[in-house]
Design a protein around this nucleic acid. Structure first.
Length: 469
RNA sequence: GGUCCCAUCGUCUAGUGGCCUAGGACGUCGGCCUCUCACGCCGAAAACACGGGUUCGACUCCCGUUGGGAUCACCA
């Protein structure tokens, strides 16, 4: 690969960081890191009506959470209006751009008419040859698009794409209020920032020939392009809110690990043989546009959930304990800011790791270890906390009281010896105990549960269960 | 409608002319393990959109059809 690769992620702050944008950012980041290049964050906020500082913050927050760090920026386009002005002036001077006095209403009417007649919706070129300004109207500036020949786009994922120039219309590069538009700013900035590879969604593919013409008019070499296929919802329409959560941070709130989301996103469109689970290091090492597919991909929440569980299973207990705390606070299992016994929490988390698909689930399960009082599930209570289990629970309680060492192994020995003595299967004792301790019929292994819960709390709960029978 | 892109199991994908009796993963179904639930393990069903070429030979190359998507703003 060539030296000094420079890429950018250029979101428009008109919304939070969503799944599609995150994947674009991720592919840029991976390409930069793989090639030891530079990753620039640029905020495309020329639409002052819809851009907000809150969204800029939200995008940054999302990228940080995913672990996508950038080397330069964030650069805001609104800080660079004088630069764009200069380039527009240059194009105007060289006759490569011209003033257009057509009103938005007029243009809209033309488009409607063209649509009705089934023609292309291209601008008529009415003001192309105008020599004198039209008084009383603040004009826009249009780029004089070549009308002969073809424009070639050599794309790293789509291959060679050809556009006939006669299909391209004279796009507006400066609004009547003097602000520049996207197609101009994107080219100027990519030139100014020495971007070598433009990696973005393939919804931009149709804009690319126009931008290529702009590069040429400005006298610059075009960068390489990589247009990534879209992410679709289950109905194959472009992914949107009605398909469920699309905000990256919504996945944080639902208890997903950032690495799991990254891993899932990268596999939408990219593959490395049959491998499904990747570390960040592997991703950086293996990433290449050669393995990026051309077809749009459907977002599949079930597979993401599975991956999240895989990452939870692989995570060290101590890390998970740290990560689950905000969720314990949110579920009001613990109080915010309260000091925690992290060693104990890590142990508790260890018993839940293999049965939690998200941190939210984990926090909810942790409740029965932490709360002083538990609620019995109605069905569980009726089935297991009844007369025939009473004596077993009493025996268990007494056994625990007289146990010298309260260890998982000793607990197991006690359970088994009671079951044997009473000539019942282990489950006859374990299930009532489980309900007594956790309130439900599903939990980690009963010996671990006792071990984590500790002798005092265990005995208190057994007493309460016995009394309730 | 014009232009552009795309097309392998329900979904994500492997496959770059013979290795394909089309592989893996999620999900689904069945089984094993077992104190419950999970995890794990074993197994099953499940796809090359269609039609023409090219070739000794096409999932792979070409053309067309069909289907899907994107785009056509003084948004980005």
């Amino acid at each position: 690969m060539s030296e000094n690769i420079r890429v950018r992620f250029a979101p428009s702050p008109t919304g939070y960081l969503h799944i599609g944008g995150a994947r674009t950012a991720l592919f840029n980041w991976l390409f930069a890191r793989h090639n030891k290049g530079t990753f620039v964050l640029r905020i495309e906020d020329t639409d002052r009506e819809r851009s907000t500082d809150e969204y800029i913050e939200a995008i940054i927050e999302g990228m940080k959470w995913l672990g996508l760090d950038w080397d330069e920026g964030p650069v805001r386009q609104t800080d660079r209006f004088d630069v764009y002005k200069k380039y527009v002036g240059k194009l105007l001077e060289e006759g490569k751009a011209y003033y257009c006095y057509c009103s938005p209403e007029e243009l809209e009417a033309n488009r409607k008419e063209a649509m009705k007649q089934g023609r292309s919706l291209k601008y008529s070129g009415k003001c192309r040859g105008l020599k004198e300004p039209v008084p009383g109207i603040e004009p826009v500036v249009r780029f004089r698009m070549p009308q002969q020949g073809s424009t070639y786009v050599d794309d790293m994922v789509k291959g060679h794409v050809v556009f006939e120039n006669e299909q391209l219309d004279d796009l507006i590069i400066q609004r009547s209020d003097g602000t520049p538009t996207y197609n101009l700013t994107v080219v100027v900035d990519d030139v100014d920032m020495a971007i070598t590879h433009v990696v973005r969604g393939d919804d931009h593919l149709n804009n690319t020939p126009r931008q290529v013409q702009l590069y040429e008019a400005l006298g610059y070499e075009t960068p390489k392009f990589a247009h990534l296929p879209m992410i679709l919802g289950s109905d194959k329409a472009r992914l949107s809110k009605r398909h469920g959560a699309t905000s990256v941070m919504a996945y944080y709130e639902m208890g997903y690990l950032p690495q799991a989301l990254v891993n899932y996103l990268v596999r939408l469109g990219w593959s490395y043989g049959d491998q499904e689970v990747f570390s960040m290091e592997e991703l950086v090492q293996y990433f290449s546009f050669e393995n990026v597919g051309k077809a749009a991909a459907v977002f599949n929440p079930e597979k993401l959930l599975w991956l999240n569980q895989q990452y939870i299973i692989q995570s060290p207990n101590e890390t998970l304990a740290e990560q689950v705390i905000p969720f314990l606070e949110k579920e009001q299992v613990i109080q915010a800011g309260q000091q925690q016994d992290m060693k104990w929490l890590a142990k508790a988390v260890g018993t839940l790791r293999e049965r939690s698909k998200t941190l939210v689930e984990m926090a909810q399960s942790l409740r029965y270890y932490i709360d002083e009082d538990i609620e019995y599930e109605e069905k569980a209570k009726n089935k297991f906390l009844k007369e025939e289990s009473r004596e077993l629970l009493v025996e268990l309680k007494e056994g625990l009281e007289s146990m010298s060492e309260f260890t998982e192994q000793e607990i197991e020995n006690l359970f088994r010896s009671i079951a044997e003595r009473k000539e019942v299967k282990l489950g006859k004792l374990a299930q009532p105990a489980r309900v007594a301790l956790t309130g439900g019929t599903q939990s980690p292994g009963i010996f671990e549960v006792l071990d984590v819960m500790g002798r005092e709390k265990t005995i208190r709960r057994l007493e309460r269960a016995i009394d309730s029978i």
